[in-house]
Amino acid sequence: MRVNILWGGTGNRATNEAIGSFVASRIGGCERGFADFTTLGVLEQGRLIGGVVYHNYVPEAGVIELSAASTSRRWLTRPVLKAMFGYPFDEIGCQLAVLRVSEENGGMADIARRFGFTSHRIPRLRGRGEAEIIFTLTDDDWRAHAVNRAVSIK
């Protein structure tokens, strides 16, 4: 599958809002959307199939939160992953990325663990009856991940 990456942000506010809305509409409990955010969108044949919202940025601590959603399981290609994590770790110099996931979203939790995130379960963080898993990924762990290793051709 060939996908294209599209960036939102202050230079492209309409695109930023569209990607932010796309992501928020697919995350339970995110009806209010996001504030002060930048986005990355993934297009297939001109159609938005995935998005990442970068928000809750704390430059003094080098920490940013990511929220993501898609309509296709195949959107996380190597170039998308490199762009997705290149922004926080290479572009703006973060040392930690945070991802919040409902304990009921086993698929997303599995993806986060595969990409090297460490999990911390917080009871009731999504309300009285639902825990949330806070996933953290350091820049060092991301750089050591297999997706960043050169592919050798024999």
Results as ranks from 00 to 15, higher is better:
Met1Tyr: 08
Met1Ala: 15
Met1Asn: 06
Met1Glu: 10
Val3Gln: 03
Ile5Phe: 00
Ile5Val: 15
Trp7Leu: 06
Trp7Pro: 00
Gly8Val: 04
Gly9Ser: 06
Gly9Val: 06
Thr10Asp: 11
Gly11Ser: 12
Asn12Glu: 11
Ala18Pro: 01
Ala18Leu: 06
Gly20His: 01
Ser21Gly: 14
Phe22Thr: 07
Ala24His: 04
Arg26Trp: 01
Ile27Tyr: 03
Ile27Ser: 08
Gly29His: 00
Gly29Cys: 04
Cys30Met: 14
Cys30Ile: 00
Glu31Lys: 09
Glu31Leu: 03
Arg32Thr: 12
Phe34His: 03
Phe37Leu: 02
Thr38Asp: 03
Thr39Ser: 02
Leu40Gln: 08
Gln45Phe: 01
Gly46Ala: 13
Leu48Met: 14
Leu48Phe: 03
Gly50Val: 02
Gly50Pro: 04
Val53Glu: 04
Tyr54His: 11
Tyr57Trp: 15
Val58Thr: 13
Val58Ser: 12
Glu60Arg: 14
Glu60Cys: 05
Ala61Met: 09
Val63Met: 09
Ile64Glu: 09
Glu65Trp: 07
Glu65Gln: 14
Glu65Ser: 14
Ser67Cys: 06
Ser67Asn: 11
Ser67Tyr: 01
Ala68Val: 10
Thr71Trp: 00
Thr71Pro: 02
Thr71His: 03
Ser72Met: 08
Ser72Phe: 00
Arg73Thr: 11
Arg74Glu: 11
Trp75Val: 09
Leu76Gln: 06
Pro79Cys: 12
Pro79Val: 11
Val80Lys: 02
Leu81Lys: 00
Lys82Thr: 03
Lys82Ile: 10
Lys82Ala: 10
Gly86Arg: 07
Gly86Glu: 09
Tyr87Ile: 12
Pro88Lys: 11
Asp90Cys: 02
Glu91Asp: 09
Glu91Met: 06
Gly93Pro: 01
Cys94Met: 14
Val98Cys: 08
Val98His: 05
Leu99Ser: 11
Ser102His: 06
Glu103Ile: 10
Glu104Lys: 15
Glu104Phe: 09
Asn105Gly: 06
Asn105Lys: 08
Asn105Ile: 05
Gly107Trp: 03
Ala109Asp: 04
Ala109Thr: 01
Ala109Phe: 00
Ala109Leu: 14
Ile111Ala: 09
Ala112Glu: 02
Arg113Pro: 02
Arg113Ser: 15
Gly116Trp: 07
Phe117Tyr: 15
Thr118Phe: 05
Thr118Trp: 05
Ser119Tyr: 09
Ser119Arg: 12
Ile122Cys: 07
Ile122Val: 15
Pro123Gln: 07
Leu125Tyr: 13
Leu125Ser: 12
Gly127Leu: 07
Glu130Cys: 12
Glu130Thr: 12
Glu130Pro: 01
Ala131Asp: 14
Glu132Cys: 15
Ile133His: 13
Ile134Glu: 15
Ile134Gly: 00
Ile134Trp: 13
Phe135Glu: 05
Phe135Met: 11
Thr136Ile: 04
Thr136Asp: 06
Leu137Pro: 06
Thr138Trp: 03
Thr138Ser: 15
Asp139Gly: 14
Asp140Tyr: 10
Asp140Ile: 11
Asp141Tyr: 07
Trp142Gly: 02
Trp142Phe: 13
Arg143Thr: 03
Ala144His: 10
His145Ser: 13
Ala146Pro: 00
Ala146Gln: 08
Val147His: 01
Arg149Thr: 08
Arg149Glu: 15
Ala150Cys: 01
Ala150His: 11
Val151Lys: 10
Val151Tyr: 02
Val151Gly: 07
Ser152Gly: 05
Lys154Glu: 15
